[in-house]
Amino acid sequence: MALVSVEHLTRIFDVSKPWLNRMIERRKKAFLTAVSDVSFEIEEKTVYSLVGESGSGKSTIGKMLVGLLPPSDGSVKIRDINLARETDAAKVDAVRADIQMIFQDPFASLNPRWRVRDIIVEPVAARGGETKGLAEKLLEQVGLSARDAGKFPHEFSGGQRQRICIARALASEPRLIVCDEPTSALDVSVQAQVLNLMSDLKDDLGLTYLFISHDLTVVQHISDRVGVLYLGRLVEEATPEELFDNPKHPYTQMLLAAAPKLGEFGREVPPPVGEIPDPINPPSGCAYHPRCPLANGRCKAERPQMRALRGAKVACHLAT
C-alpha cells in the first residue's frame, strides 16, 4: 500500500474583490483553481517530485498534503487516513506526527527570537515529549555542532539554516517530509551539500519525500518518480529516466528544451512561445493547447485524462 495517496485533489481559492467593490464595479465573484483533479501515489521510502513553473499549484498540493490547507474537493490519504475528514483525534495526531515539512526560505522559516535548541525540539515539546539532548543529537546528525544549539538563527548562513530546518523536521521522527523548494534559495555549492544530506538521511532513516521544485536538474537528481504540473493539472508522470530521456507531453518537452544546459555552449534554440495563462480564466479543454504546436480541435474542447503510455502516464490526446 502506498504511504500517500492523493485522489482527485482540487483546490479553489476565492480571489474576489470585497463585496462593496464588486457591487460598484459590477464584477462577479472570481475563483482561482490552483489545483485541479490531481491524483498520484507515493510509495514508502521513495522520493516523489512535483515539478512545475509558477502558478502550477505545486506548493498548494504540498500544503494540502501536510494539512495546512483543506482540499476543496478530492482527498489526501496518508496511511489510509484522510486528515481533512478523520474525526478520531488520536489517529489525526498520529498521522500529523508522521508528516513534516521543509520550506523554501531559510530566513523566514526559523523564528528569529528563538534559540536553535527551542526551534528544533518544538515539534516534540508541543506534544509533551522528552527533549533533553535531542537538539544536540539532531544538530550533529545534520552536520552542525552541538554547540550551535544555544545560538540564534541570525548567526547562521542560509545553508546552515536549512540544516536547522531539516533537524526540526526530523525531531518528531516523521515518515514523510514534504520539501517545498528546499534548495532554491541556496547557492549551488551549498545546494549540493543539502541535497546530499537529504539523500543520506533518507537512506539512514527510511524517509519518504515529496519534493517540490521548479528546477529540473535537481528533480532529476533526487527523484524516484516525477509528476509534471501545468496550471494546476498533472500532465505527465514517470520515472526521471523515462521523463528526461523520452518526454511525452508537449509541455514537458518544451520545459526540457527551455532549461539551460551546462554542456551546450552558445546553444541556439527557438525559445518557447507564449506564457502561462491566467489561472482565473484557464483555457478550455487541455490547458496547454494555446501554446501547443500539436493542438487540434479536440484539445480545445476536451480535457485529456491521464493514461498509461509506455511506462509513463500522460494527460494528452496526441502523445504517442
Binding site: 495526531d93 500529523r96 515539512m101 520550506f103 526560505d105 522559516s109 523564528n111 508541543a126 530546518c165
Partner: peptide, 13 residues
C-alpha cells in the same frame, strides 16, 4: 504568513 508560523501550525500548535 512567514514559514516559521506555518511550521508551528503544521505540528499542531
Amino acid at each position: 504568513n512567514k514559514e516559521y508560523v506555518q511550521a508551528a501550525r503544521l505540528i499542531g500548535r
